[in-house]
């Protein structure tokens, strides 16, 4: 049982919201939202060719990367509509980055809904040199900066939107066990 890692409910729109902003790191909106509510804005991640944007259409606005998307999120939430509900769908790192931006923009936690989706990858914080390693698929990863083989501890920081990585062979250099692929 891990209690630093949050539990996520399946995606559903909050009926008490007057407007809904859904940001997802996936290339398609979540299923079944089209006809359920008015005032829905969806941000996805998709490109039409190397560097080429896909134009917004029908309430769906694609970005070329999650970086581009999150860079605009603070600005969008700065002109917030009353009764807005905010939803983030994607990897744990993505949804907690989005959460932290929403909180900084003045939203209340009760107006924010997070849903983990997509491949089981984690952002890992290197405890030694503080580098963030993105999209890690298994519980052992080499830090690209200080070169330590990191064991991914089952310990998640919402502030850093990252799991804790600690040198796996600190005691006997080279003694690195086989990595296990994440299944959650």
């Amino acid at each position: 049982m891990n209690t630093s890692r949050p539990l996520y409910k399946p995606f559903a729109l909050d009926p008490s919201g007057l407007a809904h902003l859904i940001v997802t790191s996936l290339d398609t909106p979540p299923e079944g939202i089209e006809d359920s509510f008015d005032n829905i804005e969806v941000w996805t991640v998709k490109h039409a060719g190397p560097g080429v944007p896909v134009l917004a259409a029908g309430g769906i606005r694609p970005f070329r990367s999650t970086t581009e998307q999150l860079a605009q999120l603070g600005h969008r939430l700065g002109r917030m509509t009353a009764g807005l509900r905010f939803y983030a769908i994607g990897s744990e790192a993505f949804i907690w980055d989005a959460y932290n931006i929403a909180i900084a923009a003045g939203m209340h936690p009760s107006e924010i809904f997070l849903h983990r989706a997509g491949p089981f990858v984690r952002r890992v914080y290197c405890s030694h040199c503080r580098t963030m390693v993105e999209d890690v698929p298994a519980n052992i990863v080499t830090c690209p900066s200080c070169e330590a083989s990191l064991f991914v501890r089952d310990h998640f920081s919402r502030r850093l939107a990252a799991f804790m990585g600690v040198k796996v062979d600190a005691e006997v250099p080279g003694e690195v066990p086989a990595a296990e692929v994440f299944t959650s």
Binding site: M1, S4, D154, H155
Partner: peptide, 26 residues
């Protein structure tokens, strides 16, 4: 690590501890 744990709630920072959560200790 304080730098990792800063801002966490009671159950979050105790996340890595085995057995005690299940036993209701926290």
């Amino acid at each position: 690590s304080l730098n990792f744990d800063v801002g966490m709630s009671f159950h979050e920072w105790h996340g890595p501890v085995p057995l005690a959560h299940q036993a209701g200790v926290f």
